[in-house]
Amino acid sequence: MKRFLLKNQKFLYILLLVILFTTLLVSGCSFQTFPETGKTSQTQTGDNLPEDRSLPSSSSLLEVNFIDVGQADSIFIKFPEGKTMLIDAGNNDDGDKIISFIKKQCVKKLDVVVGTHPHEDHIGAMDDIINTFNIGKIYMPKVTTTTRTFKDVLISIAAKNLKITTAMGGMTIPVEDDVKVEILAPNSAHYEDLNNYSAVIKVTYKSTSLLFTGDAEKLSEEEMLKLGFNLRADVLKVGHHGSSSGTSEEFLSAVSPKYAIISVAKNNDYGHPHKETLRRLAAHGVKVYTTADNGNILVESDGKNIRVGRVN
């Protein structure tokens, strides 16, 4: 009888260890993996995801996550020393998805939050984000709307006694020593089209850089070119979900990206990304990846090399 109990105690002990280990795996930080093969996008002009690049440990990496929020934008950035940034927050019903994604990275504070412009597909879940996480600074362009979505964002900001820093071209956002974060647009006080108020952000980590354009269209692009901003970037977040109203030939030539990411929904009502935009990107030899075909997209940089992959 004693032997039987000892045997079963040993079995139960091992079983408990297995359960505990499994629980930790499920509840802990998500491990960002790069599968050997990725789904080929019908609109891709480059290789399948992911690319085969050898990068050092994650402690020295800039990690840029393009969260798949359908016909909307949401980009979560983790800087090499651990600071964080969120650019846009999808539609109103994307809150749970974005919050879950960020929490999986074991993040409790967003040091910088940028609402590129007050369209619902960019600030829809911003109030949920602000209500959930500790927030450092919030940047938004100086433009208002009368929508319920915009009012909800303002209410959440006020409830936490936060203030909005006006995003304008020529500003820098202090984050970490090895990283430079610049605001390149908007550059005028008034635009007819709300899209052109978009805060355009350039993130430079050592010799690599990424350009995030919100929904900026040709007029904003022309202003940035005229002002002589350094637009050169390895990765371009294509403006306005790949609409032909932006990513002009002159702008694309100035950016000269190797990779382009388009945040877009499959079979959307707008026909995004437009064929004209894809043709221009293809003519420049840019490798294009869409969230519609690849889901969440992760771009990593060690300051010298760029790696593009998928993450759950």
Rank of each mutant, 00 (worst) to 15 (best):
V238G: 04
V264Y: 01
G246D: 11
R232I: 07
N268I: 12
V255E: 03
H274E: 11
L252G: 08
S263W: 06
K237A: 11
S253Q: 10
G239W: 12
L278S: 09
E250I: 15
R280E: 09
H272Y: 11
A254M: 03
G271N: 08
Y270W: 15
A260E: 03
S253H: 06
R280S: 12
G242C: 07
S256Q: 10
A283N: 11
S243H: 13
L236P: 02
P257K: 00
G242D: 07
T247I: 14
K287Y: 05
Y270D: 07
V264I: 04
V255I: 06
K258C: 02
G242A: 08
R280M: 09
G285E: 12
V238S: 05
V286Y: 01
T247Y: 07
T277W: 09
V235E: 00
A233Y: 01
H241S: 09
G271L: 05
H240C: 15
Y259H: 01
S243K: 09
E276M: 04
I262N: 15
T277H: 10
E250T: 14
R232M: 05
A254R: 11
E249A: 12
A233R: 00
S263M: 04
Y259L: 01
H240E: 10
L252I: 08
A254I: 11
K258Q: 01
I261S: 01
F251G: 09
D269F: 11
I261W: 02
S256K: 06
H241F: 14
V286C: 04
I262G: 03
I262Q: 07
S253V: 13
S243E: 08
L252Y: 06
E276Q: 10
T247N: 11
E276V: 13
V286M: 02
A282R: 04
P273F: 02
R280A: 15
V235F: 00
E276D: 10
L278Q: 12
R279Y: 13
H274W: 07
G239S: 14
G271K: 11
Y270R: 13
T247E: 09
S256E: 04
S248E: 14
S256P: 05
V286R: 03
R232D: 07
S253W: 02
S256M: 05
R279L: 15
S256R: 09
H274Y: 08
P257T: 02
S245C: 15
V255S: 06
S244N: 15
R280N: 08
Y259C: 00
S253T: 07
A233M: 00
E249F: 14
N268G: 09
V235H: 00
V264P: 05
E250V: 08
G242V: 07
N268T: 09
A254T: 04
V255A: 06
S243F: 10
R280D: 10
P273I: 02
I261L: 03
H241V: 10
N268F: 08
K287S: 02
I262L: 13
H272P: 12
V235K: 01
V235M: 00
E250D: 14
V238E: 02
H284E: 05
H241C: 15
V288L: 05
A254D: 13
S253E: 06
Y259I: 01
K258D: 04
V286P: 01
A265P: 06
H240M: 14
L252H: 09
H240W: 15
N267C: 08
H241Q: 10
G246T: 14
V264A: 07
L281R: 03
H272C: 10
K266A: 12
